[in-house]
Design a protein around this nucleic acid. Structure first.
Lengths: 161, 161
DNA sequence: TCGCATTGCGCAATTG
DNA sequence: ACAATTGCGCAATGCG
């Protein structure tokens, strides 16, 4: 969108069956001429490639027709796709990172809640224990029955021994 | 984990259509280059890798010697750095993803715990309420000295009927 | 200024 | 045939 970047691949002008070295030293039309590798069928590097037998006579391979319009079109499409894919990938990573943050936050919240509940529970339990003791003290000497009305069972007592 | 054998940037994995032919630097071997010296500066950078186009006739600004050994050296170093950086980036993304999973898991655990604690609390509160009612029932019919009016004076307010 | 680290981009091979 | 991925190299830029 911001970059036209449409330069014609100046290199290759050969309609011959050759491969352009692209490993390195081939970028621009520097003084160095693009290396041409003789595509010997069944010979050197070409053959091994994909595990597909290469007919000795013709080496159509995939479609290494440079300089054709179809090629350029395909390239451009692919470039677009690549860009899209990368954008997505990046976005996804970003989202994931954000998710981590959210989860961390929620985690803290939950832990705080747990702490609160635990405390509440502990208080209640203490209350229970205390009450049980009170009952035991009052009930034991008299008997398990006849709870006797006038008891000081005020359960609102809160003391810390 | 690292990949040894990065000394001579030859073909990497397959080596299908890409063959390596050193320009004229070291590595004496296959190099029968037809004397083609087009010297087309216009298209410049494009080519395979760089994707850099510089219309100006002169493009030697950044000392792009290209065919010097120093250049190759720098390139190789950079390639290495790039590789490393990307590897790290990928690893990081992966770690982040894993972190999400871990956090999710822990979240579930915490929520389960919360549920448990809540239930426990609720039970205890119910017990309290019941007890309070029992007290009320026992006190009212038997002892005239009941608290009278305020029969509902349990401060332990509960949301559940 | 040098040197590594990041990042955007294009090419080609692979995959779905 | 075609879009999406992936590995890789180049160059610009960031950073110390």
């Amino acid at each position: 969108m911001s970059k036209p970047s449409q330069q014609r691949p100046n290199t290759d002008q050969n309609g011959v069956s050759v491969s352009v070295i692209q490993t390195q030293a081939q970028s621009s039309g520097v003084q160095q001429v693009p290396q041409l590798v003789p595509v010997s069928p069944g010979g050197g590097g070409g053959g091994g490639g994909g595990g597909k037998a290469v007919p000795p006579s013709k080496m159509k391979k995939t479609h290494a027709d440079k300089d054709t319009e179809e090629y350029r079109q395909r390239r451009e499409r692919n470039n677009l796709a690549v860009k899209k894919s990368r954008m997505r990938s990046k976005q996804k990573a970003q989202d994931t990172q954000q998710r981590v943050n959210e989860l961390k936050e929620e985690n803290e919240r939950l832990e705080a809640k747990i702490k609160l509940l635990s405390k509440e529970l502990s208080v209640l339990k203490d209350l229970f224990l205390e009450h049980a003791h009170n009952l035991a003290d009052n009930v034991q000497p008299q008997g398990p029955e006849a709870p006797a009305a006038g008891q000081n069972n005020n359960n609102n007592n809160n003391k810390r021994p």
